[in-house]
């Protein structure tokens, strides 16, 4: 099972075409257990399509991938049960309370009531939300909401979590507190697959992958990429690569 795996994600020539348009073009890469893996690319480079395939939400046209030990084509349901997922756009139900959201997600992931109760208590104490358990999520400040959303995505202790632009619009202090949650999760062995438009956040990743026109054009540690492209930031690397894009998608 995935506990014994060294590679949490293995993609092999993963491809998705829509008509005559190749959104994702034979990408191959591995994500190691416990790694923070930054997945970058311009709008339209194929990031979302690749991510949807890895989450078991979209079938590839060709190629294959194993996510947490499961095959994305044949075992997509298994993948959905195994992974955690959070995006800026959709995470929590605003018209449910903090506690109800956790109860709902725990239930969806098939946890029993005792486990849900224990996890609810531990998250509440970690985020200092004990007084807010019966508050509607909609009335929490955005910073708390995002941190809570992350904790809920981690509710069933997944070995791998996908974070799709988790920090968009969040204030600079909360954005950093959020990354400390990511660091802590990775430190405890969770693999983190994250997309972001903040280039300073790309520097926090163990390795960064940059997609251009459906292909992976760069994949390495941030320091190695900076050196390779002779620039002092990942933003510099990104801009050099994005300029080579031919696609007019976005």
């Amino acid at each position: 099972m995935y506990h014994e795996l060294n590679d949490m994600i293995v993609a092999d020539k993963l491809t998705k075409t829509f008509g005559d348009f190749t959104a994702v073009d034979a990408i191959s890469f591995e994500v190691k257990k416990g790694e923070i893996f930054g997945f970058l690319g311009a709008n339209g480079a194929g990031k979302s399509t690749a991510m949807r395939m890895l989450c078991g939400l979209l079938q590839p046209s060709s190629g294959s991938a194993r996510v947490a030990g499961h095959d994305i084509t044949r075992q997509s349901e298994k993948i959905k049960q195994t992974i955690g997922y959070m995006s800026q756009k959709f995470s929590l139900y605003e018209d449910l309370t903090v506690k109800e959201n956790m109860r709902l997600y725990g239930g969806i992931y098939g946890m029993n009531l005792t486990a849900i109760k224990a996890k609810t208590a531990s998250i509440a104490s970690a985020l200092h939300l004990q007084e807010e358990l019966d508050t509607l999520v909609g009335s929490l400040p955005l910073g708390w909401k995002q941190k809570l959303a992350f904790s809920v995505a981690m509710f069933h202790s997944p070995p791998l979590v996908f974070l799709d632009e988790p920090t968009g619009g969040v204030d600079p202090v909360t954005r950093r507190e959020f990354w400390e949650l990511i660091y802590a999760a990775a430190h405890e062995g969770t693999t983190v697959f994250v997309t972001t438009h903040y280039m300073d956040e790309a520097e926090y990743c163990d390795r960064v992958c940059i997609m251009v026109d459906g292909k992976i054009q760069a994949l390495d540690k941030p320091g190695a990429l900076r050196q390779m492209y002779n620039t002092n930031s990942i933003e510099g690397v990104f801009l050099q690569l994005a300029r080579t894009a031919k696609r007019m998608a976005d």
Binding site: G41, A42, G169, F238, A242
Partner: peptide, 10 residues
């Protein structure tokens, strides 16, 4: 420029 990549923002 919210939700837009660095290149398009530039």
């Amino acid at each position: 420029t919210t939700g837009v990549d660095v290149m398009s923002r530039k």
